[in-house]
Each structure stands twice: as structure tokens, then as C-alpha cells.
Design a protein around this nucleic acid. Structure first.
Lengths: 196, 196
DNA sequence: GCGTGGATATATCGTTACGATACGTCTGTG
DNA sequence: CACAGACGTATCGTAACGATATATCCACGC
């Protein structure tokens, strides 16, 4: 999905795919060559993308050979299909981030459902841990307990973040009018995009 | 290391090892059987642990067969050696948590070095991203940018957490005054280990 | 005395994905 | 011109995951 999403923006070669991905998700998960190239091969075989070895985009300079990958129509349909899936695959730990990064190409209805699914998932986890917490803390030493506490706090913060995002989406949903040119929309609650 | 650490507390069978580990680290990383049992086999071969199939600890009741794993002296030495290692293996993403959870069995000097190493690691990452941030945010859409922002915020929070812990360790180490160690030096610094 | 469901418990299998690295090219710097 | 370091494609060995097979124990209602 990550590869499809990036190629959906524009054609690109492998090395750049990796760079873009790694600064997109940055901390923690990173896409290694050991998964990138096999993935590209699979997608080629499935005709979701095409290879382009000429790269004559610029003009001259006999640039060193690089393979530019481009999304086919099949691939584009795949991407759209993947992005409209709601379900565990959308909000599990390893998937949510990349899904969120491409929210710009999804309907708001889908966005809301994914955000809420993710939030519910985290809340379930919180409940589960907090029910065990009283039992376990007695036989845990100080450091293990502190690790627990910090973990819970992080997840709680994550839940609040999701709630803010959900509210922002909802308040956007209500006014279904084309945006007037007036600057009266000062305190609008859009997802604090750095409206650059 | 996680397995050694738990068996260091008390002998245990596989299923319980897994349970303990998963509520210790809980969110995110969890130990699957597919890595637990091969690991136990490897440790058996290396004589770090022994199998005990009788489990006659209680008394009667012909409990169903369960294999209790017990640390050997070799294994204990291994654990101590692992815990006194400082270096990237101690503060990388996947290792730090488990390392921290067993801080109770480590010298404060080691603890401080691991905490500081971890903090430095995160700060490096922050700098790297923030240097790219001005460049990248212009061509990122709103959601990708928000993901970045949230990521940075989380790491900053993590750094503050580490700093607090470091200060706590330091204030334990140096009571600001060169107070003569008049009372018995026994049973001090340990932060109230389990069961005290 | 029987069946059902769920927790306990050990173990393996197929696949994915990672980390390291090989191999080559281009670009800037002293 | 030499050299270091970024760029770029690609594979290999292995660690770890998720799913599942197998089996026992126990509480429950009936």
C-alpha cells in the first residue's frame, strides 16, 4: 500500500521510494531493500506497476540508468480498493500510520471509520491492561512498574490525539458548502494543517 | 535476554513465560511461540537453562505435564554479562524496553549510561527530522504533515521522560552533600525491589 | 455421566521482512 | 587525479511472526 500510494503521486525509482517512505514514517518502521525490491517484483508480475528504464525526462547528461516505476490503471484501482477497506487491517499497529498518511486520498466517511476503529482498538487495550494492573503491580519491581505506567500514559495520549482528529473531521463534515472567499473562517477547526 | 531475566526471578514453564512477557511489554511487541520455543531450544543446547519435566513442587494432584525451565549457573552468568553491556544493543528501539524492565538487577552506573545513550539516540533522530522538516513539509499534504508533527511530539515527550529518570537516578547517587557514610551501607540504593 | 467451552500448555510450519552486504555509478573536494 | 561519500539496484541468510495442530484440565449446566 505504501508503494502504491507513493507511485500514485508520481512515478519514482526504488531508491527514492525508500527515502520518501522512511521520512514519512521515520521513527521506528522503515522499509528495507529486502522487502522493497521483492515487493516491486511482485507488483510487476501482477501488472500493478510498469518498469521504465529510459528515464529521458530531463533532456541530456546521459544520466546513469535508473528504473522508474509507474502505476498502471490496475494498480490505481488496487490502491483505491485498499484505501476504501475498513477493518482490522486498517487500524492495527503496523498499518495505521501508512493508512493515515494517505488520508488525503480517501473519503471523509472512510477516514472517520478508520480513526474510530483505531481509537476503539487502543481503548480495548487500555482496559485490558488496567484490569490486570492492580494484580501485577504488587509483584513487579519499580522499573517494570514505571515502564507500565509510561506505556499506559502514551496510549492515553494517543487516544486523545485520535479524538481531536475525529472532532476536526466531524466539524468539517457539517458545513457542506463551498468555501467562500471571505476570510471570516478564522477559528475554523480544520486538522490544524499548517496552511502554508 | 527477556527469557533469561524472567527465569532469573524464578523457574517457569513456556506458557507462563509468554504471559509474563506480554504483559510486561504489552503494547506492541509480543513474544510469539514461533520465537519462544526455538529460543528455549537454543538455550537448552547452550546449557543456559535446564528442562524439568516432573514438576513435583506442590505435592499431589498429578498435574498435567508441564516443562519447567530453570536457569543454570552458565545462564545466570550470561544474563549478568548481557545486563552489563552498554552500547547500541542496549538502547536501540527494540531492545531498550526489555533492558529497562530489568533495571532492578543492574548497577546504577550502567542504568545511567543506558538511559543517556537512549536519550542521545532519540535526540539525534529529532535533529535529523527537524532539519528535513522545512524541506519536506511544503510538498506534504495535511495528513502526512500531521503524522510528522505527532511523531516529533511523541519523541520529545520520550526524551523528557528519560531526562526525568536520569535526574532521579542522579539525585539518588549524589545526595548533594558529601555526607559521610555513617550508617551501614547495606541495603541502600536498590529501589525497593520486589517483595523487599 | 455427559457434553460444551475456555483456559492451559507444548510445539511446528510457511511466509514475511529485516539487516547486511555486494556491486556499480555519479559528484564534490582538496 | 584520487578519494570519500551519496546514489542506485539487487540478493542472501536468518530471525521472528501469525496461524495452527494437538492435547489436557476444569467449571458449568443438565
Amino acid at each position: 500500500m505504501a508503494v502504491l500510494g507513493l507511485l500514485h503521486e508520481s512515478p519514482m525509482h526504488g531508491y527514492e521510494l525508500r527515502k520518501r517512505l522512511n521520512l514519512m514514517l521515520g521513527w521506528g518502521r522503515l522499509l528495507s531493500y529486502g522487502s522493497l525490491y521483492p515487493t516491486l517484483k511482485k507488483m510487476l508480475r501482477a501488472s500493478w506497476i510498469t518498469e521504465d528504464r529510459s528515464a529521458t525526462q530531463g533532456a541530456i547528461t546521459s544520466r546513469r540508468p535508473r528504473i522508474v516505476y509507474r502505476l498502471t490503471e490496475t494498480g490505481e484501482r488496487q490502491f483505491v480498493a485498499l484505501m476504501s477497506e475498513v477493518g482490522p487491517t486498517a487500524w492495527e499497529d503496523g498499518n495505521f500510520d501508512i493508512r493515515f498518511a494517505f488520508f488525503g486520498r480517501t473519503d471523509m466517511e472512510i477516514r472517520l471509520r478508520v480513526l474510530e476503529g483505531r481509537r476503539t482498538r487502543l481503548q480495548e487495550r487500555l482496559e485490558k491492561v488496567q484490569s490486570q494492573l492492580s494484580l501485577t503491580q504488587k509483584e513487579m519491581d519499580q522499573y517494570a512498574a514505571e515502564l507500565q505506567r509510561h506505556g499506559v500514559e502514551s496510549v492515553e495520549r494517543e487516544v486523545r490525539w485520535l479524538s481531536d482528529l475525529i472532532n476536526a473531521e466531524r466539524s468539517q463534515q457539517a458545513p457542506t458548502a463551498p468555501e467562500p472567499a471571505e476570510p471570516s473562517a478564522t477559528t475554523k477547526t480544520r486538522p490544524q494543517g499548517r496552511n502554508g
